[in-house]
């Protein structure tokens, strides 16, 4: 019996990807191999390490624990989709990415895509976390290099960058009105 192939339309980072995959294709593999988005990393492939975390309709989920065929109705954001468009080909780092750069929040970078997506969603829910809350936010992701201290700092720094941007846009809006 030859394996059935499914035509699946994935919505990733605002683009549509038409892929032809067997039902057993994990979403993580579909993103990497079929969509060419290799930013999503695969560590354990059973839900434990968090490297493969993507946003599904804005909520962090393990892409290694979803089937691509089961992701048809969802809007998926990978680490590539976090970068903000500023007219340049490479785009501008998002606040969370900038914070990792500022605070040395990564070493080998293998775990980083999962942390970036998880923290991006975490700060939407809790824009001003305490240090304990920052630790709780990343508790489901493993990093073998950093010892987590600089990742916790990065969470707090990203919250700061967001707050600065908010304050600036409020001030700008105020000036326009004046």
């Amino acid at each position: 019996m030859s394996e059935q192939i499914h035509d699946v339309r994935l919505h990733v980072n605002g683009s549509v990807h038409e892929v032809r995959v067997p039902a057993r294709r994990l979403l993580s593999d579909a993103l990497r191999h079929d969509c060419g988005l290799t930013g999503t990393h695969v560590g354990c492939e059973h839900g434990v390490c968090g490297a493969c975390t993507v946003l599904v309709d804005g909520a962090p989920m393990r892409s290694c624990l979803m089937l691509a065929v089961s992701a048809v109705d969802a809007e998926i954001t990978t680490v590539e989709g976090l970068t903000e468009d500023d007219g340049t080909p490479q785009g501008r780092l998002s606040p969370v990415q900038q914070a990792f750069s500022d605070c040395h929040g990564l070493q080998c970078g293998f775990c980083t895509p999962g942390f970036l997506t998880t923290i991006t969603a975490g700060l939407e829910e809790n824009p001003d976390p305490t240090e304990d809350e920052a630790r709780e936010m990343i508790a489901g992701n493993l990093c073998r290099c950093t010892g987590y201290q600089n990742i916790v700092k990065s969470v707090l720094r990203a919250a700061e960058i967001n707050a600065e941007a908010d304050a600036k846009s409020k001030a700008d809006a105020g000036q326009e009105r004046a």
Partner: peptide, 20 residues
Amino acid sequence: GQSLVPLLSMRLAAPSMLID
């Protein structure tokens, strides 16, 4: 799929069909 997909990937389960 948070319990079933790991079982599939580790081939501890091999159903003939999945009903999503």
